[in-house]
Design a protein around this nucleic acid. Structure first.
Lengths: 131, 131
DNA sequence: TATTGTTATACTCTATAACTATA
DNA sequence: TATAGTTATAGAGTATAACAATA
């Protein structure tokens, strides 16, 4: 019976976990969409905030094929958010980095996401101030 | 200083929340992909497990345009997972329901997701059995 | 030979706009 | 007139395969 109870709790947790994840992704998607970006572009901009990876490394971070990232960065570059620079040590490699515009956008996205998820994180961290 | 502490906690929670959500979505995506389905198809099958909504209602559940759901259900129908039936009360409306094959697939997906997320939910619900 | 990045191609997902049929 | 669903169209995201340049 203890096992049965655990199973029920696990099922409820599973549902809560999946539902919460969808809510978080919805917030991320909405934030991205309001800035005319896709979720993947948002992820890429977040990754690039503190890194200047090669295309292959970026593909690794995003869990995508290199060819997919080529198109992704084509579109981001066209919008002036990132730039490509050839590596000095390996003539095959191309590094990606945020432009100043890209940094601005990425920081703004970060703040917006934090603000939108504040009801979920703030409630846990901040004590109620009623009374 | 208490406020500053709360802010730091909220930031850490935000990161954990987003990271966890991405991990959950990765599991869902992988599960879907292994069954040659997209995440949206997986969501739709999950929704249809206990409902036979109209196309418009399904679009509402999924947060998509009706036209997007038309294509989605075209592909699901072509694979024998769902069927369309015209409403008896409103000749304009079309209800969507799982076929027996669709039910099998949907149940299997549910089990696979539960299994893959067990490390995240089981750890919280089940006491350690060491010793 | 192996790796990096790109291009060509194909498919899914999604939206907007226009349409038909019904209410 | 308004609503339900579909179709046409377009663009983004993704993968696989083939390629050129470099290691």
């Amino acid at each position: 019976m203890a096992d049965d109870n655990n199973r029920q709790i696990a099922e409820a947790l599973l549902e809560a976990l999946v539902r919460t994840s969808f809510e978080v992704m919805a917030v991320l998607n909405r934030t991205a969409a309001e800035n005319d970006l896709s979720l993947t572009q948002l992820r890429a901009l977040a990754i690039l905030r503190d890194r200047e990876p090669t295309m292959a490394q970026l593909a690794g971070y995003l869990g995508l094929e290199r060819s997919s990232v080529s198109g992704l960065m084509d579109r981001a570059e066209r919008r002036g958010l990132v730039r490509r620079t050839t590596s000095s040590s390996d003539a095959r490699a191309v590094h990606v980095s945020l432009t100043s515009e890209g940094h601005l956008v990425s920081a703004r996205l970060n703040d917006e996401v934090a603000g939108m998820l504040a009801p979920m994180t703030g409630r846990l961290s901040a004590p109620s101030r009623r009374g």
